[in-house]
Amino acid sequence: MLEIKNLSVSVQNKTIINSLNLKIERGKKVAIMGPNGSGKSTLSNVIAGKQGYQINDGQIFFNDINIFDLDPEERAAKGIYLAFQYPVEIPGIANSSFLRTALNSIRKYNGEKDLNTREFLEECKNLSKKLNLDTSFLSRDLNTGFSGGEKKKNEIFHMLMIKPKLCILDEIDSGLDIDALKVISDGVSEYSNENNSLLIITHYQRLLEYIKPDEVHIFNEGKIIKSGDYSLVEKLEEKGYQEFV
């Protein structure tokens, strides 16, 4: 599904991602764990297409297409989804109307016709119930005044509505209480199947206890320094990052 080849990225002439290679197969759940400042969000942003990074080398293929030729919205329409570490507050746009605009834009790109509004609202209501969100948050302004947990849940809510092929979760677990973490990981696990892939980016092992990843990579200074299966998470738990650096 996703293949990153020899990727090097810098910001203001400082190298952040350093000759990174990573492959995510269809149907797999892949975790990247790394300390703060190791370049995890930079990697997520570069995959999603954010401007302002210098790509010095390498390529990223999504289903065999080089995505550096695509705008962020085109990547989204092709099935790449990024759940933000810090979702942006946008006052003046209702959450549900934003989501409907997004979905219709993706549908238009893929040659499908607009959503049926009633079905859309029905699905919104069902999902918000599942995520333990009050239905009022549909009409509230996008992320505006949402608590930390609500913002993260909203990212998952958007994801479940958009139904992407590749879900990148950038520290979806930071700042969540146990209940919210459980609700979110249940939602993600339920969504995960043999046709989509997950890239779970995190600092802690907590989330990975709920969503058991198939592959785990330890990431530092823009590089993968160790790869393995779930047992690596447990090792990291015991010994901390210092052991691997």
Partner: peptide, 21 residues
Amino acid sequence: FYMQSRGIKKKDAIILLIHAF
């Protein structure tokens, strides 16, 4: 960028933001 990452074109995103404003 947040709006683009959800599939909304850059131009439309800017217009939406002005409307929101």
